[in-house]
Design a protein around this nucleic acid. Structure first.
Length: 267
DNA sequence: AAAGGACACAACCGCACGGGG
DNA sequence: CCCCCGTGCGGTTGTGTCCTT
């Protein structure tokens, strides 16, 4: 990569030998930031020259959008963000930029890296089938489990897109998420009604339980680093939204078609 | 302590698309 | 209609860091 030139496709120019590649230096970052602060972004090739950067316009644009832009959010993805990525990927596939639009402050590159390094690894290890409803089911279980986690010091607010999923409305699969905990306070303990709040172990076994447990463990490990609730989305969880997915729920056709378009050889 | 492997992430690449000349 | 250029996107790779043996 750095210092590796693909000369077969590289367009030669008189300045080629001066073009820098690889990691950006602090000085380059400073140049780019100051130039954009004064002149705005866009016209990246011109920008690169006028700013005195020995980089391609493309490289400048990428550096700005993925790293230097002021509203870029640093740090680990929150649970909410991870769940949203899972859900959106199930709908849109590898449309990283589109997914990134739903996560303010996160870049498509970051989400893509997260998916390839974390999610795909997990799916591969657990041999979760692509294009299976199991995984989406697991996501819903996972959301619910996290929301009910008594040791959690944060609350989880499902993204609106999850509320719009085609969930069944059967009486034995409702009201598993305590409503009215979107203000940042920890979720209240669930009422001990067996019918409404069955013990986790008494729930219908998830078709992807191993995946869930693995994922939960992964998430618990990250809890120390989580941002305060509300730092990302202000998703509200209302009574209507506090519904749990049943094990036999029906996927919308479009979701089935787009579900987990992972590389088949990896699964 | 050292070596090798695994992992995470920044950065690059090719390609596609749209607008302007 | 064609060409050029800027931009955006998804896939891939290089490299530093962490982990394991």
């Amino acid at each position: 990569m750095a210092g590796v030139s693909k000369t077969a496709t590289h367009r030669p120019s008189e300045e080629e030998s001066e073009l820098r590649r690889g990691p950006w230096t602090v000085e380059e970052d400073t140049l780019l930031i100051h130039y954009i602060a004064a002149h705005g972004e866009g016209q990246w090739n011109i920008l690169a020259k006028q700013a005195g950067l020995k980089r391609t316009g493309k490289s400048c644009r990428l550096r700005w959008l993925n790293y230097l832009k002021p509203d870029i959010k640093r740090g680990n993805l929150t649970l909410q963000e991870q769940l949203l990525i899972l859900e959106l990927h199930s709908k849109w596939g590898n449309r990283w930029s589109k997914i990134a639009q739903e996560l303010p402050g996160r870049t498509d590159n970051e989400i893509k890296n997260y998916w390839r390094t974390r999610v795909q690894k997990q799916l591969r290890q657990l041999k979760v089938q692509a294009h299976s409803r199991k995984l989406l089911d697991a996501i819903c279980h996972l959301s619910m489990l996290e929301a009910m986690d008594q040791t959690s010091n944060y609350s989880i607010n499902l993204p609106p897109s999850l509320h719009n999923m085609n969930l069944p409305n059967s009486s034995n699969s409702t009201v598993l998420l305590p409503a009215n905990h979107s203000s940042g306070a920890p979720p209240p303990p669930p009422p001990r009604s067996v019918q409404q709040w069955p013990e986790v172990s008494a729930w219908p076994p998830s078709p992807c339980g191993e995946f869930i447990e693995s994922w939960r463990f992964d998430m618990v490990e990250q809890k120390q680093q989580h941002e305060p609730v509300g730092a990302v989305g202000d998703w509200e969880v209302g009574d209507r939204d506090a519904q749990m997915i049943a094990p036999d729920w029906v996927l919308e056709d479009v979701m089935v078609e787009n579900l987990w378009s992972l590389d088949h050889h990896l699964i």
